[in-house]
Design a protein around this nucleic acid. Sequence first.
DNA 1: ACGGTATTCAACCAGGTGGTTGACTTCCAC
DNA 2: GTGGAAGTCAACCACCTGGTTGAATACCGT
Lengths: 126, 126
Amino acid sequence: MSDELSQVFAALADPTRRDLVSRLAAGDATLGELAAAYPMSLQAVAKHLRVLQDAGLITRGRDAQRRPAHLEAEVLDLMTKWLERYRRKAEERYRRLDGVLAELDESGHQLPDTTESQDPTKGMAS
Amino acid sequence: MSDELSQVFAALADPTRRDLVSRLAAGDATLGELAAAYPMSLQAVAKHLRVLQDAGLITRGRDAQRRPAHLEAEVLDLMTKWLERYRRKAEERYRRLDGVLAELDESGHQLPDTTESQDPTKGMAS
DNA sequence: ACGGTATTCAACCAGGTGGTTGACTTCCAC
DNA sequence: GTGGAAGTCAACCACCTGGTTGAATACCGT
């Protein structure tokens, strides 16, 4: 699954992890502080932080034996951009009812189009 | 994992599924048309469509034995809103260096704050 | 009515995920 | 230097996921 976007989406596909992000948006916090808020072991929360870190959503500092977690906003940008691209396309298609004409035209040629004959699992939907 | 946002994020945490979304953003398509583009069985693509459908990202029509898939933009809104909320908070914290003052102040009270004493796994990060 | 096309259903499998517990390492404070 | 606090490492478990194949269903065109 290794690619960047997949990792970020996967990281946020968990309520606990989204809640961690929401807390960190308010300010940095240590594992202990965070873990206290959840009905699970501290190690489990540590694993969640690890996932967020691998996805580039947080970084962890060092203050003696504390390792405060810090939210990084940049990666959220990445996702937002991806979403916006397709959200807008879909909305346009929805608004413009005359789009049906284009679609009727499109049903003429079986194989969708040109310029995309290589394996789509590589370099998909950038 | 059942909650709505988790399902949507999880659905997009797969390159094949993101690619499907990107294709559907350009126009509705049937399973057969879509499956032709991927190096996997048609049934596998059908499963992916199922996941997208369960997440509310697509709906499927009926045209005789065809079941054209149609992208729904609304759910993308949901995600965008969630992302924007925290992206903005994080960016603000980043821009305003004077934020350190607030954080120093914050380190005064151990338990973060009021109004959230119940189990955080329920109703997390709305 | 038949054959082909479009899709779904079901069983199975390898590998990943979210959680547990127990032991270990680090570092401060006294 | 010892004790306790903060964090990490490792093994283990139940369940979910992404893929496979094979068979079944539904519908159109001739």
